[in-house]
Design a protein around this nucleic acid. Structure first.
Lengths: 148, 148
DNA sequence: TTTTATGCAAACATTTTGCAGTCAC
DNA sequence: GTGACTGCAAAATGTTTGCATAAAA
């Protein structure tokens, strides 16, 4: 797994040290949610996160806990949520550099990409409109190579 | 109102002539939904569409009808839906050229923009991944000039 | 007259919340 | 022991669907 630059154990350790400083408590549920996000490396729905933790580690995590933890992680800025347009939020770890997505409208495959030219041009666009740029989302929809 | 190149009466007439050809029927509800989308020129939720039709024209349109009509319009390709990230779909007429959006995270103001460089670069990105590009969404989040 | 469209209410899917009990520190 | 976390079930939200009636062609 070389998707992320940091190995999981180091990442988890850093995380667990950081949590109490924010006034919160660690839990095995948080650990396993991070673990499944890290090792699946995919864009998972809340349901999929709970299901995969059960499948891989035989640990039960309630769906409410997943949602609550996702909010917590989003506030900590260690995950990002993505809306593919099918009414379910998908979550991914935010450890790699910013990237955008290609989404296959046939098989729902998600491919990540980065493009410096697009990144830079966004800054220009925001400046033109006197906008204080915080974030952006760029998603390209189409058919992946297997589907056309 | 010079947001769209076509005036409303012409647009509505074209629309009403087109509907029976597809095997469907015209209705006052469809007319008013188009009217409110055209003249508000905004990105409205289903709820807002129904509410504004009542307010402006004192006509009741059921929320189910709005949703069904939105699906119909989307299949006809005369509207586009937009997800700002708050869990509600927003709809806008698709009469102007393709554009993307700047969304203010403070006041929710939506500004449209087009950028040829970004448009072109998307085609290049899609080609690099052997993707058959159908559509794309690009949204820049930040603070508008009134909010920072 | 035939067929589609509408409005209502019920159903649905996803996400959020209240609460009692559990666990972390 | 205190305060945050969890799981469950109930509630809330946005959207869809079934059905009887109304309207269009």
């Amino acid at each position: 797994m070389d998707k992320y630059e940091i190995d999981f154990d180091t990442f988890l350790l850093n995380f667990k040290e950081h949590v109490p400083k924010l006034g919160f408590k660690n839990s095995v549920q948080k650990d396993y949610i991070l673990k499944i996000l890290y090792f699946s490396g995919e864009h998972l729905t809340a349901e999929q996160i709970a299901f995969n933790i059960k499948k891989e580690y035989n640990i039960d995590v309630g769906i409410a806990t997943v949602y609550r933890t996702m909010k917590f992680f989003e506030e900590m800025n260690i995950i990002e949520s993505l809306d593919v347009g099918d009414g379910m939020k998908r979550y991914e770890l935010n450890l790699s550099l910013h990237h955008d997505h290609l989404v296959c409208t046939s098989c729902s495959k998600i491919i990540e990409f980065t493009d410096d030219l697009i990144e830079k041009q966004q800054v220009t666009v925001a400046r033109n409109y006197n906008f204080d740029l915080k974030d952006h989302v760029m998603t390209i929809y189409g058919l992946c190579e297997n589907c056309h």
